[in-house]
């Protein structure tokens, strides 16, 4: 998965899956054309060198005022069996009813590389409400065994989807580390808990509870158990030093009975306007973008490679200067590292 030289996208069609013109494609995505969104996501997933070059140009063309201030990027996580997909489905039904378009990135685990690395992506069937809905777009992704449970591709794909949908949902299975990853993607992170489950207790103990902005206790139709879990979370949710003045609400919802969804949405909207008014939204997205760049560089070149261009502090400084669109800067740093690697031969 090495990104090679900074070359132009090939003009002629090599194969049936020839690469698109990235700037044209960006325009179509901004016009919210579904086929363009699909094509763009395929491109961002493509590891061939020439596709990488196109990807960088596509992301740059999609970056701008909207990508820092528009839309709402929501991360949903929680233990297996908590009913995340059903809840996402119920949430989508409400958003669609209100006329808002929704893009979903549903992340499922891959099998281990020595077992072939394949994946069963079964979320569509659980998320979809209507047979046909032009305002909903679901892309399933395998995590491809990347540390942290969320594939590196998720961030650029979210960036693309923000350009085309009012709301973008990233759904992941929570297995400890995932929550940390999702916190570096979502504007708002929602943890879905299921009543009376050991997972939730573990979660409360682990300290990861400091990450979500909103808690949804699903299956509230179970009654007492749900209230008890909500109470436990409410007492444990850490309040110190994270986003000041945010109250970390705990919502009781039932995906199957379709209750509590409106309140949950109210909290999502409230959190988004809280971020916007406090001037945090742009900062958050920029920070997430930087975190992704660091992750990409570290994954590809390791700490040694990062040191070749002055270490994390230097990278941070360079990214700070590129407020809003760091994809091109990332590519420049890659090239620098590669050329230093080569010259040190």
């Amino acid at each position: 998965m090495v990104w090679r030289g900074w070359v132009r996208c090939p003009d002629h069609q090599m194969t049936p899956a020839a690469l698109p013109d990235p700037e044209q494609l960006a325009l179509r995505i901004l016009r919210r054309e579904r086929a363009a969104v699909a094509r763009g996501l395929n491109l961002l997933d493509n590891k061939l060198a020439e596709a990488r070059q196109c990807s960088v140009r596509l992301l740059a063309a999609l970056s701008g005022e909207h990508s820092l201030n528009g839309g709402h990027l929501i991360g949903i996580t929680g233990p297996p069996g908590a009913g995340k997909s059903s809840l996402v489905s119920a949430m989508i039904r409400e958003w669609r009813r209100a006329g808002r378009t929704v893009g979903v990135l549903a992340v499922d685990p891959s099998s281990r590389p020595e077992l072939g690395g394949g994946a069963l992506l079964g979320d569509r069937i659980r998320i979809k409400n209507a047979a046909h809905d032009e305002g909903l777009f679901i892309r399933s992704l395998a995590n491809r065994n990347q540390l942290g449970g969320v594939a590196t591709e998720v961030w650029p794909m979210s960036w693309l989807m923000l350009a085309a949908f009012d709301i973008v949902v990233v759904e992941t299975v929570g297995v400890g580390q995932t929550e940390i990853d999702i916190a570096e993607i979502g504007d708002t992170v929602c943890y879905v808990a299921q009543p009376a489950s050991g997972d939730t207790i573990q979660y409360l103990k682990s300290g990861i509870i400091e990450i979500p902005d909103i808690f949804a206790v699903n299956k509230s139709d179970l009654g007492a158990a749900a209230y008890k879990t909500a109470g436990e979370i409410g007492r444990s949710a850490s309040r110190q030093d994270r986003r000041d003045d945010w109250d970390y609400p705990v919502c009781l919802v039932s995906a199957t009975m379709n209750t509590g969804i409106t309140e949950l949405h109210g909290n999502f909207d409230r959190h988004r306007s809280f971020l916007a008014h406090a001037g945090l939204l742009q900062k958050l997205r920029t920070r997430h973008q930087s975190a992704w760049v660091v992750r990409v560089l570290k994954e590809e070149f390791g700490t040694f490679g990062v040191e070749l261009i002055g270490g994390y502090a230097e990278i941070g400084k360079r990214l700070e200067a590129q407020y809003g669109n760091q994809f091109e800067e990332c590519e420049r740093m890659r090239q620098q590292i590669i050329s230093r690697f080569k010259s040190s031969d």
Binding site: L115, G116, G117, G118, A119, L120, L121, R124, S140
Partner: peptide, 9 residues
Amino acid sequence: RDVGFEVVY
């Protein structure tokens, strides 16, 4: 899936 495809069903 067992032989390495990412499968949507």
